[in-house]
Design a protein around this nucleic acid. Structure first.
Length: 369
DNA sequence: AAATCGGGGTT
DNA sequence: AACCCAGATTT
């Protein structure tokens, strides 16, 4: 079999390359299945460089699964703030409780048990089993898909079910009999450092397995893998308010049935085509019962999945009767609200948009307080 | 099968 | 501004 010979050749070269080129990453310094699990969840659709500081904070604050299970969800979400995909934080917390209860506090080493936990799919289960327990399970992530689709010159669009099955099957076939964890990481590392997405230049001249790579031989590297079309971006405009009073500024908690559920944010609203100055005045009056002219601070961009948000930030001091009117309006709503200082934000679940607004504030802060 | 969920690193 | 990242889950 040609494929089998190819697989053996590929294994040897890849492992050897990895020995010399593996990046020193924090989660590579531990054998604790709990910490490896946490790293894998954080790394879902999230780049290594982004994850590192969060992983370090998390492993320090919740060094054991028991500590995580006993923590409050709010604290976990606060620590996760800025990392995105906040469902992961809820699921990690929920899984920790399930593991304490149902698995004696030990991260399962059975594939089916891992898959039963929220937030763990086929990739993450394989990663935990191979990396933490050195069991022979394949993985298939974005990196591995790119590498395999090139090595085997697969020209079908990747998202189809049949193609996915084929890729999983290949990932399983090329797996060595021992050291699956190291091999899996080597495959991903190759995708991260050498076999880069089209658009970036692939570094085939440094690739340890270019001789086994069909795409390289046929000069198809820049055309593979074939990716599905992406959803069109939707442009959204919104206004956002810094309502300042003596003791700080106002934040609201998002409801449970929307994007970023339960996260704290500045008061604001999506607007249509009207000038944002007018919208700001009107929304302040109608939605927050504040009659006054907000001061335009600046606008910033923020994107959430397919949404490209332009956020116009306004600032207004509230006190006396104006504040009383605002408080009345807030009390009549079911939304939670708080007045906080800037340094209290880090203890509350919040998206990075509000952090961007805070940074915007730096140049003018001395004029505010 | 397609849509949804965050945010930023990189080019 | 586009692409895509150590994907999972819901529709």
């Amino acid at each position: 079999m040609k494929d089998l010979k190819k697989a053996e050749d590929l294994r040897v070269r890849l492992i050897s390359w990895y020995a010399d080129n593996a990046r020193p990453l924090p989660w590579r310094e531990t054998h604790d299945p709990y910490l490896i699990w946490i790293s894998e969840i954080m790394l879902q659709q999230t780049q290594v460089a982004t994850v590192i500081p969060y992983y370090l904070k998390f492993s320090k604050r919740f060094p054991t699964i028991k500590r995580l299970a006993e923590a409050s969800l709010e604290e976990v979400l606060a620590l996760w703030s800025g990392l995105g995909y906040y469902k992961r934080a809820r699921q990690v917390k929920q899984s920790a409780e399930q593991i304490i209860k149902g698995f004696d506090g030990l991260i399962p080493r059975v594939h089916k048990d891992l898959l039963s936990l929220p937030g763990i799919g086929k990739y993450t289960a394989g990663a935990i089993l191979s990396i933490a327990y050195d069991l022979n399970y394949p993985i298939l992530d974005g990196n591995v898909m790119r590498v395999l689709s090139r090595v085997f010159a697969m020209d079908e669009v990747l998202n189809a079910k049949g193609v996915q099955n084929k890729l999983w099957s290949l990932a399983e076939k090329i797996l060595p009999e021992k050291k699956a964890g190291m091999f899996n990481q080597a495959l991903m590392e190759l995708g991260a450092l050498i076999c880069l997405p089209s658009g970036k230049k692939s570094l085939c001249h440094d690739c340890p397995i270019s001789e086994s790579c069909e795409a390289h031989q046929k000069d198809l590297v820049s055309q593979l893998p074939k990716l599905p079309e992406k959803r069109e971006k939707v442009k959204i405009q919104q206004v956002m308010f810094l309502l300042l009073e003596k003791k700080g500024f106002l934040i609201l908690q998002r409801p449970d049935d929307v994007l970023l559920k339960g996260m704290w944010e500045l008061p604001g609203k999506e607007i249509s085509d009207q000038p944002h100055q007018e919208a700001a005045y009107q929304i302040l009056k109608e939605d927050f019962a504040v009659d006054g002219n907000p001061h335009y601070l600046s606008s910033l961009s923020h994107s959430i999945t397919y949404r490209a948000i332009t956020c116009h930030v306004y600032l207004i001091h509230v006190s006396g009767e104006v504040k009383k009117s605002l408080m009345n309006r807030l009390e009549s709503r079911t939304l939670e609200y708080r007045w906080i200082q800037r340094d209290e934000l880090q203890d509350l679940p919040h998206s990075s948009l509000i952090d961007k607004v805070m940074l915007l504030l730096d140049p003018v802060q001395k004029d505010l307080f």
